[in-house]
C-alpha cells in the first residue's frame, strides 16, 4: 500500500496528464486536418477552392462553393421547419396538455432524441423521398434533406425552448396570475420575449448539429453538386461529399476534402462559441442533463 501522500501525487500527475491529453486532442485534431489539407491550400489556394467552376477534383476544378451553399441551405431550411414545430410542442407541453399527456410527450421527445441519425436518413429515404418523387422527380432533394434534418434537431430544440420558456421568474408568474392572464398570453407576451436570447442560442447549437450531420443527409439529397436553386432539386452537402469521396480520393483531391473537414470544424466551433456567448452553454447542458435524467 503506497503512502497517502504518494498516492495523491500520482493521482495529481495522472489527472494533469489526462487533462493535457484532452487539450491535445483538439490541437491534434486541428493539426492533423491542417497537415493533411496543406497541399491543397498551398497548391490550389483558397481563391480557387472557392472560385473554381464546379467540383471536378480529378480534373483540377476545386470549386467548393456549391457544396458550402448546399450545406448552409439544408441546415437553415431544417431550422426554419423545426423552429415553429419545436415552439408548438413547447407551448403544448407548458400550457395546454394535461400533465399525463405532457409527460408522455416528453418521453416521446427523449425517445426521438435518441434515434440514430442513420435511421432517420433511412426513414427519409423510404418515406420522404418517394413522397417528393410523386410531386416532382427525382425526389431526393434539398427539401428531403431539410425535412429529415428538421426531424433530427426537433426533439432537442423543443426541450431547450421549453427550458427557456419555463424560466419565467416566479414574481412575474404570480403577477400574471393575479391579472388573470391566459396562459397563452403569458407565454406569448412575457416568456417569449424574455427567452429570445436563449432560443437564439439554442438555434445556433442546433445549426451546428445540422451542418455537421452526414448520414441523414447523404441518403436523401441526391448528391448532385450544384447550387441549391430549387427546393425539389438535388444538392450535395460538404459532409455528404466527404462520405462519398474520401474512400477513393488521393493526392490533391484527398487534401481538398480535408480542407472541407477543416471548414466544418471551424464553422461548428465558431457557432458554439457564439452560442456560449449568448449563455446557451449552461442551458444546453442543463437540457441535456435533464433529458438524461428525467
Amino acid at each position: 500500500m503506497p503512502s497517502p501522500r504518494r498516492l495523491d501525487r500520482a493521482l495529481q500527475l495522472a489527472s494533469a496528464a489526462a487533462a493535457a491529453a484532452a487539450l491535445l486532442l483538439l490541437l491534434g485534431l486541428a493539426a492533423f486536418l491542417l497537415r493533411e489539407s496543406a497541399p491543397a491550400l498551398r497548391e490550389v489556394g483558397l481563391v480557387r477552392l472557392v472560385g473554381d467552376r464546379g467540383w471536378h477534383p480529378t480534373r483540377g476544378a476545386f470549386g467548393m462553393a456549391p457544396l458550402v451553399a448546399a450545406s448552409g441551405a439544408v441546415a437553415l431550411g431544417a431550422l426554419t421547419l423545426a423552429l415553429p414545430l419545436a415552439l408548438a410542442v413547447a407551448f403544448v407541453r407548458l400550457a395546454y396538455a394535461p400533465p399525463r399527456l405532457a409527460a408522455l410527450l416528453r418521453a416521446l421527445l427523449q425517445l426521438l432524441a435518441a434515434v440514430p441519425s442513420v435511421v432517420l436518413g433511412f426513414f427519409g429515404l423510404v418515406t420522404v423521398v418517394p413522397l417528393l418523387l410523386a410531386i416532382e422527380p427525382p425526389g431526393a432533394s434539398l427539401l428531403a434533406g431539410m425535412v429529415v434534418l428538421a426531424l433530427m434537431v426537433l426533439p432537442t430544440l423543443a426541450l431547450l425552448i421549453e427550458g427557456a420558456l419555463a424560466g419565467l421568474p416566479s414574481g412575474e408568474r404570480a403577477a400574471a396570475a393575479a391579472l388573470g392572464l391566459a396562459r397563452t398570453t403569458v407565454l406569448l407576451h412575457l416568456a417569449l420575449p424574455r427567452a429570445r436570447g436563449a432560443i437564439g442560442a439554442a438555434l445556433l447549437v442546433a445549426l451546428g448539429r445540422a451542418l455537421g450531420e452526414t448520414m441523414a443527409v447523404v441518403l436523401v439529397t441526391g448528391n448532385v453538386v450544384q447550387w441549391p436553386s430549387a427546393l425539389l432539386a438535388p444538392v450535395r452537402t460538404l459532409t455528404a461529399n466527404l462520405a462519398l469521396e474520401l474512400p477513393y480520393a488521393s493526392g490533391l483531391h484527398r487534401s481538398a476534402l480535408f480542407v472541407a473537414g477543416l471548414l466544418l470544424l471551424g464553422a461548428t466551433a465558431a457557432l458554439l462559441l457564439i452560442a456560449s456567448r449568448c449563455g446557451a452553454r449552461e442551458r444546453w447542458r442543463g437540457a441535456r442533463e435533464e433529458s438524461a435524467r428525467a
Binding site: 467552376r53 464546379g54 471536378h56 480534373r59 476544378a61 422527380p137 427525382p138 431526393a140 441526391g222 448528391n223 448532385v224 453538386v225 438535388p234 450535395r236 462519398l244
Partner: peptide
C-alpha cells in the same frame, strides 16, 4: 465531358 452531364442523382 463530365461537366456537360446534367444529372438528377449521383450514385457511388
Amino acid at each position: 465531358r463530365a461537366e456537360e452531364v446534367r444529372a438528377d442523382v449521383v450514385i457511388g
